[in-house]
Deep mutational scan, measured.
Amino acid sequence: MATKAVCVLKGDGPVQGIINFEQKESNGPVKVWGSIKGLTEGLHGFHVHEFGDNTAGCTSAGPHFNPLSRKHGGPKDEERHVGDLGNVTADKDGVADVSIEDSVISLSGDHCIIGRTLVVHEKADDLGKGGNEESTKTGNAGSRLACGVIGIAQ
């Protein structure tokens, strides 16, 4: 089992970053940390998408990683996509320092995120509470600013 993974985020604009993942036990939580720069100040949706395909930019990554066919939600919700990591918060300089621990994603097994795409979005994720159909699919997080395929790390 891989215990570490990394993702280099890039987009068409100024947004870029490096996100690290570490899972010490196969059924334990995954620590997610790193930094994203070039964002507007505020909240930005942060999700693992189904495919590791960036051939047409971030759009070819498909929908959120959702092997259990659930509705979109927040990272602490029972009803959520596996890939729903909530929001990252950018400061006035456009930098989001990421520090998350998640017990639904994994670096092995059915919820493995390796080979899938991590995406940072234009807007805040409403965590499935926006009151419309799009909220239950995407959290109304808007366009995909930057993305990268999650790969095994040393």
Rank of each mutant, 00 (worst) to 15 (best):
D125R: 07
A96Q: 03
K71T: 06
H121V: 10
D12A: 13
H47E: 04
L145W: 11
S135I: 08
N54A: 08
I152M: 15
F51V: 09
I152T: 13
E101N: 15
L118H: 01
F65P: 05
G17N: 01
I114Y: 02
I36E: 03
H72P: 08
T59P: 14
N27G: 07
P63I: 03
W33E: 14
G73R: 12
I113V: 13
G13S: 13
C7A: 09
H121W: 11
G62R: 07
G57V: 10
E79T: 14
R80I: 04
L39A: 01
V149W: 03
V8M: 12
S69A: 05
Q16R: 13
R116F: 03
T3R: 12
S26L: 07
A5L: 00
T55P: 05
V15P: 05
I18Q: 15
G83S: 11
E50M: 03
C7Q: 01
F51A: 08
K71F: 07
G83H: 10
E22W: 09
K76G: 14
D97H: 07
G52D: 05
I100K: 07
F51W: 02
G28E: 13
A153R: 12
Q16K: 14
S35K: 12
D110P: 14
H44F: 11
N20A: 05
S135V: 05
V82A: 12
N20Y: 07
H47D: 08
L145G: 09
K92E: 08
E78S: 12
A90P: 04
G148E: 01
I18E: 05
L118W: 00
I19L: 07
N27R: 14
I100G: 06
S135Y: 06
A2T: 13
G34A: 03
D125Y: 09
H44E: 01
D97R: 12
L107P: 02
S103A: 11
D102Q: 02
A90I: 00
I100R: 06
N27H: 10
L9I: 11
I150F: 02
H121M: 11
H72K: 05
K4C: 11
F46A: 03
P63D: 09
G74E: 13
I18G: 05
K137N: 09
I100L: 11
R80N: 04
A153K: 06
K92D: 11
R70H: 13
A124L: 12
L68W: 04
E79C: 13
E22I: 13
V119G: 06
S26W: 11
S99E: 15
E79K: 07
D125N: 09
S143A: 12
K76E: 12
L127T: 12
H121E: 07
E101I: 05
V120P: 00
I113W: 00
T117H: 13
K76C: 12
F46T: 02
L118R: 02
V120E: 03
A153N: 12
G83R: 12
C7K: 01
K37R: 11
D12W: 05
V88M: 07
V95Q: 13
V104D: 08
R116T: 00
P29S: 14
T40M: 11
N27L: 14
V6W: 04
G151W: 10
L118G: 02
V119R: 02
K129Q: 14
G115F: 00
V119K: 02
S69T: 09
S106W: 04
V95I: 12
T40H: 13
E122S: 12
G86D: 00
C7R: 05
A146D: 05
G28W: 07
I19S: 03
